[in-house]
């Protein structure tokens, strides 16, 4: 292979890493939305507002990455919001009530979250429980456990630096929580595009039997995917705890729906096998910018709900339309 060929190939794979193939529709939508809000408000197009939006999407962004993995293999995870609340309560209990160092509290919270995901995955693969049912059950169980830890009360009293990690902007723009989110995005994109493990998810979502006959360990991969999704929910919970400087068991109610919406807006098909993290990030940004913009436009809260619903319908309809045309 000549040097120019190598160069060309590297260039193309670089371009691929930053392209959002399959999500061009949503990307155009996002850009139009930004232009519209820039014209309609004086406060939208500012560095500070941009940073606010990043702050505001951390939890949804990380959760939606996990949800993308699950939906790519043709599954669904309804338990992410509850698992997040459970992880938050474990974090608060270990750090504040039991007085353990933060690092142990974070490890404990992630372990509990991961375990919840592994159990869902195990039920789905070994007992053939449909993913919808298994994670619906986990949603209820995790929420109940989260409430049991403190009998329904919140926990406050984290060390001061914990909240500061969500407030102090290092280098003038990057809070620790946003940095974690960006790291998750980069790792997820690299995994999904360039690791054999990432490509396998597409095979499983496209047709699990073909994947199995192709030598892919479908069961193990499925359990790992649900575990990762729950781990990411736990991580989102830790960041949310930092942002709110408190934890409460009623956190994250209906977050699974936001996460699913972001994934779907980003062009990942609910039947699995197509889509990707790049699209999901755009989906998350669309929801984040939309919420932020509607607040800036002073749109009534009731109308906001209607608009977000319309955007979901629009995104999915556009994708279906594109499919039919091609």
């Amino acid at each position: 292979m000549t040097a120019t060929q190598t160069l060309r190939q590297e260039k193309s794979s670089l371009r691929e890493a930053f392209s959002f193939s399959g999500a061009t529709g949503p990307l155009i939508g996002l850009l139009l939305l930004c232009v519209f809000l820039t014209v309609m408000t004086d406060s939208f197009l500012s560095f500070r507002n941009f940073l606010n939006i990043l702050d505001q999407i951390t939890v949804l962004g990380i959760m939606a990455v996990g949800m993308t993995l699950v939906i790519l293999i043709g599954g669904i995870d309804l338990s992410v919001g509850s698992v997040m609340a459970l992880a938050m309560m474990v974090l608060g209990y270990l750090n504040v009530e039991a007085g353990m160092p933060m690092i142990i509290a974070i490890t404990g919270a992630l372990l509990v979250a991961g375990l919840a995901g592994a159990i869902s995955g195990f039920l789905i693969t070994e007992f053939k429980v449909p993913a919808f049912i298994a994670t619906l059950a986990m949603m209820s169980i995790a929420r109940g456990l989260a409430n049991m830890i403190t009998d329904g009360s919140q926990i406050i009293g984290f060390p001061a630096w914990f909240n500061m990690s969500a407030i102090i902007r290092y280098g003038g723009f990057l809070t620790l929580t946003v940095a974690v989110m960006l790291a998750v995005f980069v790792i997820a994109i690299l995994f999904q595009r360039y690791r054999a493990g990432g490509r396998m998810l597409y095979a499983i979502g496209g047709n699990p039997e073909v994947a199995r006959l192709a030598g892919i360990n479908v069961k193990r991969t499925t359990i790992l995917v649900y575990t990762s999704c729950a781990l990411l929910s736990g991580l989102a919970g830790i960041l949310l705890a930092a942002r709110l400087d408190s934890v409460q068991p009623s956190s994250g109610v209906a977050y699974e729906l936001d996460a699913i919406a972001a994934v779907v807006i980003g062009g990942t098909s609910l039947s699995g096998g197509t889509g990707g993290i790049g699209g999901t990030i755009i989906g998350v940004l669309i929801i984040g910018v939309l919420r932020n913009g509607l607040n800036l436009l002073n749109v009534s809260p009731f109308l906001q709900a209607v608009i977000i619903g319309l955007v979901i319908v629009l995104a999915v309809a556009a994708e279906t339309f594109k499919h039919r045309k091609s």
Partner: peptide, 20 residues
């Protein structure tokens, strides 16, 4: 159609799935 190829994935993807 049900066990050999994934119909809405490309030729190269289908070939890659068993040759990582």
């Amino acid at each position: 159609k049900l066990q050999g190829v994934i119909l809405d994935h490309s030729i190269s993807e289908n070939i890659a799935y068993s040759n990582f």
